[in-house]
Amino acid sequence: MELSSEITDLLRAGANHVNGVICLPGQVRKLWPLLSEAKRLKLITFLDVEHPIITDMGRLAIGAPTEVDAGYARFVAACTSRKQLSPTPDKDPRTDFDYRSYKACGYVCCLVVRQMDGRYNPATIRVGNTLTSDPQFLGPKNSQVLPECDGTPFVLALMPKWLIDRTGFSTYPVALDEGAVVWSADDRATWARLRDVCFSVNLRIRNAGRRTPTAKLAHGQYA
């Protein structure tokens, strides 16, 4: 099928659009001769007067994948682009019972900065959102420090939700300030790793205790 370059460009625009839309509603009147010809050839169809979309015949005419294949490709790309949670279940030192306990106690995970502490043999850890922000002191009575942060300038800890709300800490830590010269490349890599652990722990706390759906039994198997 010989197609003009104008119709080919419209079909390519529709093939690249997530919903197959050929052009904007305000362009329909201007492009009506081309759209009418493409509709006559069954290359496009109209959802309504202002929304022409490409058909599978139109996709075939320009060598583009069908709507089903294009949607499946977007689905696969979305699934594979998501970062895997860390730690993975086989490397996580915490059990499902631990996560159920955290959820029952109202604990959530938080990543904060370990601040300089001039006290002698302190029983708590001085932390804050930054090195110079208002400090908060974490101890066994108000938090549980996770082992993943040992030996790092950061603290990954489980705290009651009410304490996080009061201190202004966040369960969704942002990236370190790019303009701060106090953090080295290794520090930033450590922060990124601990962020993934924080997200993973909070997700598993939120999903703790949820039963995995099972297949419905056949009649007579419930006895």
Rank of each mutant, 00 (worst) to 15 (best):
L85M: 11
R94W: 05
Q27E: 05
R210E: 00
P52N: 11
I62G: 07
V197C: 06
L131H: 08
D48A: 01
H17R: 00
F75I: 09
V112H: 00
A223F: 04
R119V: 06
P160K: 15
G179E: 12
A175W: 00
T45C: 00
D186V: 12
R29F: 06
L217E: 13
A180T: 11
A185Y: 05
N16W: 05
D56N: 15
V18L: 02
S133C: 11
L146E: 09
L24R: 15
T88E: 12
P122R: 07
A192M: 09
V49S: 11
L111S: 04
L24S: 10
L11N: 03
P52R: 13
V68N: 03
N121S: 01
Y102L: 02
A223Y: 04
V181L: 13
V182C: 15
L158F: 14
L176Q: 09
M159G: 02
A192D: 14
P140C: 01
I7H: 04
F154G: 08
S143M: 06
C149G: 01
A70D: 12
K83S: 04
Q136K: 13
Q136S: 12
D186Y: 03
N129C: 08
A77C: 01
F169L: 01
F46C: 00
V76R: 11
R94S: 04
L138P: 09
C109Y: 13
R188N: 07
C198Q: 04
Y120C: 01
R59C: 03
L146T: 04
D165K: 14
T88N: 09
G209H: 03
I205Y: 01
S170T: 14
T124Q: 06
E50K: 15
K216E: 08
D186H: 12
L47F: 06
E50M: 10
P147F: 11
P93W: 08
E178L: 09
A185D: 11
T88L: 10
T8A: 05
A180L: 03
P52M: 05
A13D: 15
P160Q: 02
S133P: 09
C198K: 12
W162T: 06
I125V: 13
F137M: 08
T132M: 10
G106T: 07
A189S: 13
R166F: 09
K141Y: 09
K83Q: 08
S170R: 03
P160R: 15
T190S: 13
T212Q: 07
E148R: 15
Y99R: 12
L176V: 06
C105L: 11
F137L: 02
T55C: 05
S101E: 04
G168Y: 01
P89F: 10
D187Q: 07
P25T: 07
R29Y: 04
R29V: 12
S200N: 05
D150I: 14
